[in-house]
Amino acid sequence: MRVSVAGLLKQRSGPDAVRAAMSSPSRIDRPLWQTLCTEIGVAALPVPDEFGGAGAGFAETGVILEETGAVLCPVPVYSAAIATAAILATGDTDAARRLLPGIASGEKSVALCWAGPDGWAAPGVTAEAGLLTGTAHYVLDGESADHLLVLAGTSSGLTVHDVDAHAEGITITPRPVVDPTRPLASVTFDDVAATTITAKADTEDTLRTAAWALLSAEQVGGAARTLDLTVQYTKERSQFGRPIGSFQALKHRMADMYTLVETSRSISRAALDAVAAGAADAPELAAAAHVYCSESFATVTGEAIQLHGGIGITWEHDIQLYFKRAHGSALLFGQPHRVVTELAKRLHGAMTAQPPTSR
Rank of each mutant, 00 (worst) to 15 (best):
A81I: 06
A81H: 01
A81F: 02
T84G: 04
A85C: 09
A86W: 00
I87D: 02
L88G: 06
L88I: 08
A89T: 00
A89V: 05
T90H: 09
G91F: 04
G91N: 01
T93V: 13
D94L: 14
D94R: 11
D94V: 15
A95K: 05
A95N: 05
A96F: 04
A96G: 15
A96E: 01
R98T: 12
P101V: 07
P101L: 05
I103E: 02
A104V: 03
S105W: 08
G106H: 07
G106Y: 05
E107Y: 00
K108R: 15
K108H: 04
K108L: 14
S109I: 13
A111M: 03
A111F: 01
L112P: 05
A115Y: 03
P117R: 14
P117V: 13
D118F: 14
G119T: 12
G119Q: 11
W120C: 11
A121V: 14
A121C: 13
A122L: 13
P123K: 14
G124N: 08
V125W: 04
V125M: 09
T126L: 06
T126E: 07
A127N: 08
E128D: 14
A129Y: 04
G130Q: 12
G130D: 09
L131V: 07
T135D: 12
V139P: 04
V139S: 04
D141F: 05
D141Q: 08
D141P: 07
E143D: 14
A145T: 09
D146A: 00
H147V: 01
H147K: 05
H147R: 07
L148S: 09
L149T: 02
L149W: 00
V150D: 01
L151I: 12
L151K: 06
L151D: 05
A152N: 03
A152M: 01
G153A: 13
S156N: 15
S156E: 15
G157L: 11
L158H: 14
L158T: 15
T159D: 11
V160E: 01
H161Q: 06
H161M: 07
D162M: 00
V163G: 02
A165Q: 10
H166R: 07
H166L: 09
H166K: 11
A167E: 07
A167I: 02
E168Y: 10
E168T: 10
E168L: 11
G169L: 10
I170V: 08
T171M: 08
T173A: 07
P174Y: 01
P174Q: 05
